[in-house]
Amino acid sequence: MVELRAYVYLDRLQPQFAAYIGANARGYIPIPGMAAVLVEIAPGVLINQVTDAAVKAANVQPGLMVVERHFGVLEFHSQAQAEVKHAGEAVLEALGVKLEDRMRPKILSSQIIHKVNPYHAQMVNVSRLCSMLLPGMDLYIMEVQPAGYITFAANEAEKTSQVTLVDCRSFGAVGRLYLGGKRSDVEQAAGAAEAAIASLAEKESES
């Protein structure tokens, strides 16, 4: 039986987040302003059925497909929001699930470190997937479960402030987000990221 771990609709990809997908995925590269959906399921191998349903149902391009032992993740996007939404509906139908069947997101950790030390910044930069964290920046770190929901937090945070997307891990056991910048920008982005996850959790609670 398939488990819908995460289903995330992104209405408008932000510049840094779109660049992150393009730099780290092996599929079709998105550009800022596109709409996107990210689906996370278990067992992982069934993500191939998700991809098949999405690309056959609408004019969408897959950007990221990951097949892990336990979880599978697919991101697809298009210039047209209607195409993305239609492909998303086809995915749910193919899996035999409804949107309200998705797991409720949970914030595992949310923290801000002020004025990062130069050595600390270098340690973060060693394994980062996005932009550099510079010494003296504030650093925000969020962990979310299931992992796919971190994409919504990252995209919504970027909408609110001039923050730097340092790292984003959108698959695996835990989703992880690193943001850097001035204190006021980081605090604003952190609030937006937490509010984004809370809004999804509220929807699931109501359903």
Rank of each mutant, 00 (worst) to 15 (best):
Y140S: 04
F171S: 15
Y178S: 12
R183F: 03
A201F: 06
E194T: 02
I197Y: 04
A196V: 03
L179S: 07
A154M: 05
D167N: 15
G148F: 06
G148I: 05
S199E: 13
L134C: 05
A157F: 03
R169M: 09
I150W: 09
Y178T: 06
T160E: 15
V144A: 10
L129N: 15
G180S: 08
A195I: 00
G191P: 04
K182M: 09
L133I: 09
R183C: 02
Y149Q: 11
K159V: 09
M142I: 13
G191M: 07
G191W: 04
N155V: 03
I141G: 04
Y178N: 11
S184K: 14
Y149C: 11
A190I: 09
C168M: 09
I197N: 06
Q162R: 14
Q162F: 14
D167H: 15
L139D: 00
Y140L: 07
Q145D: 05
E156A: 12
L165H: 00
L200F: 12
I141W: 03
L165S: 01
G172I: 00
A173I: 00
P135G: 11
S170A: 15
L139Q: 00
K159Q: 14
F171P: 10
V166R: 12
A173R: 08
S161R: 05
R176Y: 04
G191K: 11
Y140Q: 06
C130W: 11
E158P: 00
V174L: 10
L133N: 05
D167R: 07
Y178E: 14
Q145M: 10
A198S: 14
E194K: 07
R128L: 03
Q162M: 10
A195W: 00
A190S: 15
Q145H: 06
A189L: 04
Y140T: 08
A157K: 00
E194F: 00
D138L: 01
V144M: 08
A157I: 01
A157L: 02
K182Q: 12
K159T: 13
G191E: 09
A147Y: 02
F171C: 13
P135M: 02
S184Y: 05
S184F: 06
I141Q: 07
R169H: 13
K159F: 08
R169A: 12
T160I: 15
S184R: 12
G180E: 07
S170N: 14
P135E: 10
A193F: 03
A198I: 06
G181N: 01
A173Y: 01
I197F: 04
